[in-house]
Nucleic acid binder design. Structure first.
Ligand code: ZN
Ligand code: ZN
Ligand code: ZN
Ligand code: ZN
Lengths: 146, 146
DNA sequence: ACTATTTTGATTCTCATTATGATTTCTGGA
DNA sequence: TCCAGAAATCATAATGAGAATCAAAATAGT
């Protein structure tokens, strides 16, 4: 689906690796991927693209607003295609699955809180960590919600 | 101010490095510090404590609930004393200063959102990034609030 | 103080990410 | 089309935060 025009619009010249990576981000069944994930999936597809290029291109994509980089707890950065719809994330610490959500009231309050301190927000990150439905042994939620 | 009893209560034996680090965390003018920050401030105070020990002790303190570890954008972990009052953070990307806040409505909505997905929260992180009052050139907030 | 156990600190190691330098691919004009 | 210069890529090396090692030192109970 993605083609040269997407890269051009982002101010990046068209190259094979960039196209391949962009296409992978769109077509992979996995929406939130580490650089390593991207690299491995390219290898699996017999694409000959170096890991350094994957990191470089993902960083360029981030700069161009094509992807969003997240820092979930415990290690590597995670990238996802930027579809223009902001959302936040719930991360299951048991299975690693990532769920997206958007809550206008939370977003609104963030602005309010910042305004009260004369703070000019230009970005924010909100991650909820816990155990997803599928991974819960007993049906109950034992943990305290901090 | 902090003494052996604080460590004992946390299930940690009393040692000089642990006491020194705990004292530093309480007395430093900086509330949010990297391991490197702690190490340097100990050096400045002529305390002979290795960087490895700083990392090890901070991690032990985290496990014991004495400190909280944060992952602000762009690199190293940041530690702060756990005073028992949960709060979130605004980080100024110009001067690096960290401001704390707590908004019950945001906290409440987080629980609601999680409950709707049958997700059992056991932790969360919310960071607002932007420019603080003191660093704003013109009085206006030019950035869009995402 | 004596001894068993724990902790420390210098160093090494790991691993994610970035920088480097050589090589290849584009590009745009002759 | 051919060629120079620019830009991008690749393999590899370097970096930096943080964890693992392990002999030496400190601690706690007797
Ligand atoms: Zn949000
Ligand atoms: Zn997402
Ligand atoms: Zn909160
Ligand atoms: Zn804080």
């Amino acid at each position: 689906m993605p083609d040269k025009s997407d890269l051009k619009k982002a101010g990046l010249k068209t190259t094979v690796p960039r196209l391949k990576i962009l296409r992978l981000l769109e077509e992979s069944s996995q929406r939130h991927m580490t650089a390593e994930d991207v690299y491995r999936q390219l290898l699996d597809a017999d694409e000959d693209i170096g890991l350094a290029t994957v990191y470089r291109v993902l960083t360029q994509f981030e700069g161009a607003g094509l992807v969003i980089r997240h820092h979930f707890e415990g290690g590597s950065s995670v990238f996802e295609l930027n579809e223009g719809k902001h959302h936040d994330h719930m991360v299951c610490v048991e299975c690693g699955e990532v769920f997206e959500f958007f809550d206008p009231r939370i977003e609104e309050r963030q602005n309010q809180v910042a305004a009260e301190s004369d703070f000019c927000i230009d970005d924010h990150s909100l991650y909820l960590y816990g155990v997803c439905k599928g991974m819960k042994k007993n049906g109950k939620c034992s943990k305290k919600t901090v």
